[in-house]
C-alpha cells in the first residue's frame, strides 16, 4: 500500500492495519519513521517544504515495494510519504514491513527507504528559523547506499 498525501498520518493505525492483515502468519514488524529534524546542529529548521511529482511518486515507490517483496519473504509493505509544508518534528515518511522472520522485515524496510531516497521524485526545501532558504542537495552517501543493495560487496551475508 503506497500513499502520498499532504496531511499527517497515523503510524499507530497503519501499524495496527498491517498486524491485522498479517493474522498469525507474521511475527515481526519493522517500521521506519522519518521526521523533520534541524538541518544542522547550529541551523534550526523552521519548515521543510516538500515538492513532489504526483503519479510518478506513487509508481516509483510501488516498484520499490514490489522489488522488496520479490527479494525478501514479507507481506505487502505500507509506505506513506507526505508533501507540502512540514514543520519541525512533524512526520515525513513511514515504512512498515511484516514478515515471519525478523531479518526479512529489517532488510526490506531499510531497502525501501534507501531506494526511495534516491528514486522517488520528492525535493526538499529547507526554511531555517533564521529565514535562510535553500533546496537540499542529494547526498552521495545516499546514492552509494542504494547501489550497495544492488551490488553487494563479496562476502556480505544476504
Amino acid at each position: 500500500m503506497v500513499i502520498v498525501q499532504e496531511t499527517d498520518f497515523d503510524a499507530a493505525a497503519l501499524t495496527a492495519q498491517l498486524r491485522e492483515r498479517s493474522a498469525g502468519k507474521a511475527g515481526a514488524l519493522v517500521s521506519f519513521t522519518g521526521y523533520v529534524r534541524d538541518y544542522a546542529q547550529d541551523q534550526a529548521t523552521h519548515t521543510l517544504f516538500l515538492e513532489h511529482y504526483p503519479g510518478m511518486c506513487e509508481r516509483e515507490i510501488q516498484t520499490i515495494c514490489d522489488t522488496a517483496q520479490s527479494r525478501w519473504n514479507t507481506l505487502e509493505p505500507i509506505v506513506v510519504h507526505r508533501y507540502g509544508a512540514l514543520h519541525h518534528k512533524e512526520q515525513i515518511v513511514f515504512v512498515a514491513v511484516a514478515s515471519a522472520h525478523r531479518g526479512d522485515s529489517f532488510k526490506a524496510c531499510e531497502y525501501i527507504i534507501d531506494a526511495l531516497k534516491t528514486r522517488a521524485p520528492f525535493w526538499k526545501r529547507e526554511i531555517l528559523s533564521g529565514g535562510k532558504q535553500f533546496w537540499v542537495q542529494q547526498r552521495d552517501a545516499d546514492t552509494q547506499k542504494t547501489d550497495l543493495w544492488d551490488n553487494p560487496p563479496s562476502g556480505t551475508p544476504s
Binding site: H52, H81, L116
Partner: peptide, 10 residues
Amino acid sequence: VAVFEPVTGG
C-alpha cells in the same frame, strides 16, 4: 518529459 535535480525525499 520531466527535468529536475537529484531527488531528496525520505
